[in-house]
C-alpha cells in the first residue's frame, strides 16, 4: 500500500480522570473505503473518531491524514484540516433553531472568511449547492423549516448533508443510527454508503449493531477496551470473533442498556 489515505500510529488517549480510552491504536485507511468500527460501549470508538478531527486531543501518538502530520496542528491550519473531514453525530448536533438549509450551509463555514461566516453571509452559489445537497438526501421540501421540526431520521440526513457540503475527503460518523428507529437507520446507512461510493469519500462509521456493520461496510474493525482486536472483511467476522469483541460481560451490558 503506497497510497495510504489516513493513518494513526500508536494513538493513545488518557482522560484527566485516568481512564485509558485508547491504548496504542495503529491503523491505516485507504481512499474510498467504508470502514465500520464496532465494539461495546466505552470501548473508545468515539474517542478514536474525535481524535482524528481533533475534537479530542490525543495524549500521544500520531495522526497522518493525506500524508500530513495533523496531530498537533493549531489555529487556522487545524480549521483547514477539519473542513476536509465531515462529521456525523449520534444526536445529529444540528442548530435546532436555525433552518435546515442554514444547517447545511454550516458545512461551508470553513471555506469562508471568519467574519462573513459568522454573520451568515453565504454566497448564492453556496446556497444553491446546499439546496442541491438537500435534494440529494430527499429533503428539498424541508429546506426552510426549522431543524427541530424534522423527525430524527430527517435530522440525521441534514447532518449528512452538512458533512457533504464541506466537500470532505473523509467522513467520520459517530454512532449515526443509535438514536433512530430501524427503518430510518437503514435509510441513513444507505445514504452514507451511496455517498461514500459515488463521491469516493472515505467513511469511518462507529456502530453498535454488528449486523448493520456486516451489511454496509467493506471492512470491519473491532475495538475493545481501547485496543484493536479485529480488523478484516465482514465475512471474516465469525460468531466467535464477535463474542471475543463483545465478551460475555460486554454482551450483557449491551442487552441491558
Amino acid at each position: 500500500m503506497t497510497d495510504i489515505f489516513l493513518e494513526t500510529r500508536n494513538l493513545k488517549k488518557v482522560y484527566p480522570d485516568g481512564t485509558e480510552a485508547l491504548k496504542n491504536i495503529t491503523l491505516t485507511f485507504n481512499k474510498g473505503e467504508l470502514v465500520s468500527i464496532i465494539g461495546p460501549s466505552g470501548a473508545g470508538k468515539s474517542t478514536f473518531l474525535r481524535s482524528i478531527n481533533r475534537l479530542n486531543q490525543p495524549s500521544s501518538g500520531e495522526v497522518i491524514f493525506q500524508n500530513e502530520q495533523i496531530t498537533n496542528v493549531k489555529g487556522k491550519k487545524l480549521l483547514l484540516v477539519r473542513r476536509q473531514i465531515g462529521m456525523i453525530f449520534q444526536d445529529f448536533n444540528l442548530i435546532k433553531r436555525s433552518t435546515t438549509v442554514r444547517n447545511v450551509l454550516h458545512g461551508r463555514l470553513g471555506y469562508m472568511s471568519s467574519l462573513k461566516g459568522a454573520f451568515g453571509r453565504f454566497s448564492e452559489e453556496d446556497v444553491k449547492e446546499a439546496l442541491a445537497i438537500l435534494r440529494r438526501v430527499g429533503l428539498e421540501d424541508h429546506a426552510f423549516k426549522r431543524a427541530d421540526e424534522l423527525s430524527g431520521g430527517q435530522q440525521q440526513r441534514v447532518g449528512i448533508a452538512r458533512a457533504i457540503a464541506q466537500k470532505p475527503a473523509l467522513i467520520l460518523a459517530d454512532e449515526p443510527i443509535a438514536s433512530l428507529d430501524p427503518s430510518s437507520s437503514s435509510n441513513v446507512m444507505n445514504y452514507l454508503k451511496t455517498i461514500s461510493e459515488e463521491d469516493g469519500i472515505t467513511t469511518i462509521v462507529n456502530l453498535h449493531q454488528v449486523d448493520v456493520a456486516k451489511r454496509f461496510a467493506s471492512r470491519i474493525i473491532g475495538i475493545k477496551a481501547g485496543e484493536v482486536v479485529f480488523d478484516g472483511k465482514p465475512n471474516e467476522l465469525t460468531e466467535q470473533r464477535i463474542n471475543e469483541i463483545y465478551d460475555q460481560r460486554g454482551l450483557v451490558n449491551e442487552l441491558t442498556s
Binding site: 478531527n53 475534537l55 480549521l79 483547514l80 484540516v81 477539519r82 473542513r83 476536509q84 473531514i85 465531515g86 462529521m87 453525530f89 448536533n93 444540528l94 442548530i95 454550516h106 458545512g107 463555514l109 470553513g110 471555506y111 471568519s114 461566516g117 459568522a118 452538512r162 464541506q166
Partner: peptide, 10 residues
C-alpha cells in the same frame, strides 16, 4: 459547539 467546530468553523 462540536457541530460547528467539526465543520472547520472558527
Amino acid at each position: 459547539i462540536d457541530a460547528i467546530r467539526a465543520t472547520g468553523g472558527s
